[in-house]
Design a protein around this nucleic acid. Sequence first.
DNA 1: TATAAATAGACCGACGGTCGGTTTGTTTCA
DNA 2: TGAAACAAACCGACCGTCGGTCTATTTATA
Lengths: 228, 228
Amino acid sequence: MVRIKKSPELRSNELIDCAERLFFQHGYESTTVNDVIREANVSKGAFYHYFVSKEALLEAVATRLAERNLKELQPLFEDPSLDAVGQLNALFAGSRRLKLDMAPQLKNTFNALFKPENVALYHRIDEALMAVSVPLVAEMLRRGHEEGTLDAPDPEAAALMLLQLRVSVAKVMHTALKRYEAGDIEAAAAMLDGWMRTYGTAIERFLKLRDGSIEVTEPGFARAFLEA
Amino acid sequence: MVRIKKSPELRSNELIDCAERLFFQHGYESTTVNDVIREANVSKGAFYHYFVSKEALLEAVATRLAERNLKELQPLFEDPSLDAVGQLNALFAGSRRLKLDMAPQLKNTFNALFKPENVALYHRIDEALMAVSVPLVAEMLRRGHEEGTLDAPDPEAAALMLLQLRVSVAKVMHTALKRYEAGDIEAAAAMLDGWMRTYGTAIERFLKLRDGSIEVTEPGFARAFLEA
DNA sequence: TATAAATAGACCGACGGTCGGTTTGTTTCA
DNA sequence: TGAAACAAACCGACCGTCGGTCTATTTATA
């Protein structure tokens, strides 16, 4: 094979690119190191020069995903024109926009992430996302508590719990998606919509906000997402 | 090797016994099928006669664990002398008793379950526990809503969310345990106690109960558990 | 030109899983 | 009654694949 040399960062990123694609496409366990190096046109020696193990590659994928997520969220949390509740709502609004824009990829991602052979992938990504999100949300809750716009005893704990609740929404999005694909469209949309509302209610009550102050979803969103 | 024949159920349970022990002791991934059959004194052929894969064995372990959990919880949920809030508190009280009684094993379990090589184990157990718990809790919430002792819109969704919150408590128990083992006893106890209180507050607020009606923990519990 | 980083790819051992065959118990029927 | 037929349980040698290692070679750079 011809010997090609590239800058370390480039190579490393190419490997992570391939891995990310393959992991989501075929699952983490079903993707072999040989698959990755074939796609990336790299020898095994080169691969193990950059990553000590397949596991390390997974971690790199998860970390990069979380970092990108952080970069998107960061500005929102630093916006001084919004109070904490406004930030939360902006977060959900942004999340909705993103979900609609990237619906096809996202659906694919969900399907991949919840496959049993992908628990490792799911877990690592969740861990990485939590690691970057908890401090951000905790800080937001602290500010909101000081402003008096919400009531969050122990912002750290509350942040983790709020983010933990997010998992239940992800779960229900997945089952709703399955149901939609099975043709049960009405039920799927109704379920997703209802659960997202309940999620909003849970947050409102937990943070002692008045009813309706959190807008996790908006009329027609569930359906629009499913049909996108 | 001498040929020993046993009733299928016995054999199968022996295999699950060994697997459970080995999985928790050395981790799921580090435990090989050969390890299991060696401990169980069974040939490979016999093993694959009972389980189609190593994965299937893991599922069996998780399912049995969840079933046992269900058997312990079932009576409590059927106790007619308690209202829904009383049931919840009884649940937490029982859980505390159990935690103190089995503290050593539980600590070991926690350490095993949160090791990175055990995500599959963790995930499967969580899934199995959820599957048996959600209907129970949902039914309890429905009853409570009818009684008027609590306010749970959409009991199914609320049940899943409440149970999802439990994960954050498990996470904090693990970190508190680590901190305790590192010698930071005061901080560990304070952290665990505080977070459990926050968990209680979250539940109270979500279900619109009056402050202090949910007793997730009691004075001195966190410390007692850590020192047990 | 010396040195270290980067790349190549043959190779290894362990692992999950398969397969052909044996043993044991149970059912069927002359 | 007993032997033939069948099914379930069991055995362990074997296989293909996979993550990871190793040695050799090339390339950049100081």
